[in-house]
């Protein structure tokens, strides 16, 4: 019998989500967002992400030349706003196609069972 603390589901689910994280973030950066607003946009759509994880990810994506960023001071503290640049748009399109293909494959595998 599987003990509650041995239940592997949460960890495996987290790994699944982690794999889709970059695509989820890129999808929300077609519009200009700063970190906290992006996090809320993702959470509202059912993709919560730890704040501590999101900011380093945004920096990495920018370092890879996929995002453009600028500092803005409006009401509140200075905030760094991000959005996709051309390379980011292209990658988003390619990753979306890969995701759709993968989702189709997985659906076939899961519905087909062992037949």
């Amino acid at each position: 019998m599987v003990k509650p603390q041995d239940n592997p589901l949460p960890k495996l689910e987290l790994e699944l989500r982690r794999g889709a994280l970059v695509l989820a973030v890129l999808s929300q950066l077609r519009e200009v967002q700063y970190g906290y607003s992006l996090r809320q946009a993702l959470a509202v759509r059912g993709m919560p992400i730890e704040e501590g994880t999101l900011y380093p990810l945004l920096r990495r994506l920018e370092g890879q030349g996929l995002l453009a960023s600028e500092w803005r001071i409006e009401d509140g503290p200075p905030r760094r706003y991000y959005r996709l640049n051309d390379a980011g748009e292209r990658l988003l399109a390619e990753l979306t196609a890969s995701w759709n293909a993968l989702a189709g494959t997985m659906a076939g595998l899961l519905e087909g069972g062992t037949t």
Partner: peptide
């Protein structure tokens, strides 16, 4: 090299939270 940016980023994030 990234200290200033990270400091501002985290400061804003923590203020929002």
């Amino acid at each position: 090299g990234a200290r200033d940016g990270i400091d501002l980023e985290l400061r804003g994030l923590l203020a929002d939270m």
